[in-house]
């Protein structure tokens, strides 16, 4: 025996492992806990805060952000980033508004917009994969390109007067006890549900996590890495298009400057929701919670009438920093064992 190396006798490995498993949920659960705490604080401070409708309004006001965060979660789980989503939302709105103005059938318009978003995302994914370029740069180019295309369509704001779109904007789906949601909420939650299913119940979804865990390992394990990476950006593009449609339902117009900086809100929501920017760890439900936390910050500011709306940004910034530090703590714990 000349190799004289030995680690201490293994402890009860089964028990340690279980703890490890639960630790994966910690950041996302922290977000849910934070949301509940903020809701409780709000209820204590303001009369009328503690109502079902306040919660539902959070969903109604943030449908597009929820959908964007879902697409972004896929991308970030692989360790990538998609900066183009805000611009693609604006482009989707512009295309929809322009085509509706030209008298197109609203359903054909929606279909075309979704197709455009998906193809735009797939194209970026293909560039990232084939030429091995940083996602940051490719999607930054996508950001400028999509924004520029908005101006090509129209410099001015276009109002949407299509009856289907206006009906969607005004429709209220009543729930029990005078509570209601908009159709957009149903669509957004449907997107969340589908994403959850895809990530946890399909080989494609597991490959997304595997790529985040180690791309070269995933390749050597014989997984469809290139296809998955391209598709992930396609999904983000598709989600941006859906978000664009939802935003159109909400605002009933198309405007070249709409949704500026929205990609950063989406990234913030995903990170606050517990997804690691380096990929591999995170949950789409966490991202949903992240959006709700950002939303409730806004609600707070509006309840507190004296505060300037810039406080939203400041609080979001502080939250983002806090969560990134939390994640750092969490990953350090994982590495040590």
């Amino acid at each position: 025996m000349s190799v004289l190396t030995r680690t201490p006798a293994p402890l009860d490995r089964r028990r340690i492992s279980r703890l490890q498993g639960k630790a994966r949920y910690a950041p996302s659960l922290a977000t849910v806990g934070l949301f509940l705490a903020m809701f409780a604080v709000g209820a204590a401070m303001y009369p009328g805060f503690l109502s079902g409708q306040v919660f539902l309004n959070l969903l109604i006001d943030n449908t597009f952000l929820i959908v964007l965060a879902v697409g972004m979660t896929f991308v970030i789980l692989t360790g990538g980033i998609d900066l183009s989503v805000g611009s693609v939302v604006a482009l989707s709105m512009m295309i929809a508004a322009a085509l509706l103005q030209a008298g197109w059938n609203p359903f054909a318009v929606i279909l075309l917009v979704l197709l455009t978003g998906a193809v735009f995302g797939l194209a970026m994914g293909a560039v990232i994969q084939v030429f091995e370029i940083q996602p940051f740069i490719v999607t930054l180019a996508g950001l400028f390109l999509a924004r520029g295309l908005c101006y090509v369509i129209s410099v001015d704001s276009i109002t949407v007067t299509d009856p289907f779109f206006t009906s969607m904007a005004q429709a209220r789906i009543p729930l029990a006890d005078k509570l209601f949601v908009s159709p957009g909420v149903v669509i957004a939650l449907l997107v969340v549900a589908v994403a959850f299913y895809v990530l946890h119940q399909t080989r494609f979804g597991r490959t997304v996590y595997a790529i985040g865990g180690g791309e070269s390992s995933a390749l050597l394990m014989g997984l469809a890495v290139p296809r998955t990476k391209i598709l992930v950006y396609g999904i983000s593009g598709l989600c941006s298009a859906i978000a664009g449609i939802l935003f159109s339902f909400y605002s009933l117009s198309g405007y070249s400057l709409a949704a500026t900086g929205l990609e950063l809100d989406a990234i913030a929501a995903v990170v606050v929701g517990g997804t690691l920017l380096t990929g591999g760890y995170g949950y789409v439900l966490g991202s949903l919670a992240g959006v709700l936390v950002l939303g409730i910050v806004q609600t707070f500011i509006s309840y507190e009438g004296t505060l300037s709306s810039w406080w939203t940004r400041i609080v979001i910034g502080a939250l983002l920093l806090a969560f990134i530090l939390l994640q750092k703590l969490f990953t350090r714990k994982v590495r040590l064992t």
Binding site: H200, Q201, T202, R203, T207, Y209, G213, G214, M221
Partner: peptide, 24 residues
Amino acid sequence: NLCPNLSVEENILLGREPRRRGGI
């Protein structure tokens, strides 16, 4: 060459997971 973020069972079966109607 495995994925540290996934469970042992997934690492063993990744890409070959048994499926049924409705997913893995």
